[in-house]
């Protein structure tokens, strides 16, 4: 992702990854209990603002992502909009029945997905795997074996990409690529998949052996090359998130844009 992530100097990069992780994921719980469409609309606006300022993506990628996410989020709500329950019919054609209630619910759902995607993106683009897992071990006391397992696995990713290249080359060199027809194609696909999996498993085994040969211990205490601590940025982060969330709630009660204060009501 090296060239996509533009700016590592951004504030969110400096926030403690565990804190960032806990707070962002607790947002899910929070918004699970919000059924007020206005709150969701305002929250979307504020999270969009947050996204624009905090996201680690570079400009053109960043804009493209928002657009794409918005469209996909509406897609994900389409079933609810077209086939949901409700009384006030807006549009009816054969099986499709759009009602005010279902439209509201649909938009509610779409916006939820939209918000969480934005938050997820902010998190993903400002959190590097290495400090993230180190922080999980140090702050959240995640057992070393799982954290190092994840670290090692993430480090294998680029190699896996190369491996796919090697498999393709082997098929080419050995003449498998020249075979045509549906059967040959499906054979090839299954081979690819199996070889990819087999290679990844073998690589994981080898890495485990290499780690143990270097006296990695799953149980004993250890020191850390990277120490992830706390800083004033964590306070800023907390503050920014609080403002974003509360402004959503405040605005929704001051400036309700729609009459749907509880989309679950009939």
């Amino acid at each position: 992702m090296g060239d996509i992530i533009a700016n590592r100097g951004k504030l969110f990069f400096k926030v403690n990854p565990s804190l960032k992780f806990l707070l962002t994921s607790s947002l899910f719980i929070l918004y699970l209990f919000v059924h007020n469409l206005n709150t969701m609309i305002w929250a979307s606006v504020f999270f969009l603002v947050l996204y624009v300022f905090a996201c680690g993506l570079s400009g053109k990628w960043s804009f493209g992502f928002v657009l794409l996410t918005l469209i996909l989020s509406l897609f994900s709500a389409s079933a609810m909009i077209l086939f949901g329950k409700g009384n006030t019919v807006i549009f009816h054609y054969s099986l499709i029945m759009m009602t005010q209630e279902s439209l509201a619910r649909g938009i509610m759902l779409g916006l939820r997905t939209f918000c969480f995607s934005l938050i997820g993106m902010v998190f993903a683009t400002t959190t590097l795997p290495v400090p993230f897992f180190y922080s999980l071990m140090q702050q959240l006391k995640v057992p070393v074996r799982y954290a190092y397992g994840c670290l090692a696995a993430f480090r294998m990713l680029p190699v896996m990409g190369e491996e796919l290249g090697h498999i393709r080359q082997a098929m080419r060199v050995r003449g498998m690529a020249n075979q045509h027809g549906v059967k040959a194609f499906s054979n090839k696909m299954i081979r690819y998949l199996l070889m990819m999996l087999a290679q990844s498993i073998r690589r994981a085994q080898r890495t485990a052996i290499a780690m143990e040969a270097k006296r990695f211990s799953m149980t004993e205490a250890r020191t850390y090359y990277y120490e992830i601590g706390w800083s004033v940025y964590d306070l800023y982060f907390l503050f920014i998130l609080l403002i974003t969330v509360t402004s959503g709630f405040i605005c929704s009660s001051l400036f309700p844009v729609t009459p749907f204060t509880n989309v679950l009501d009939h």
Partner: peptide, 12 residues
């Protein structure tokens, strides 16, 4: 190399 040092519990 740091991985080995971590395993040996050398202070950072």
């Amino acid at each position: 190399i740091a991985f080995v040092l971590e395993n040996r519990r050398i202070p950072r």
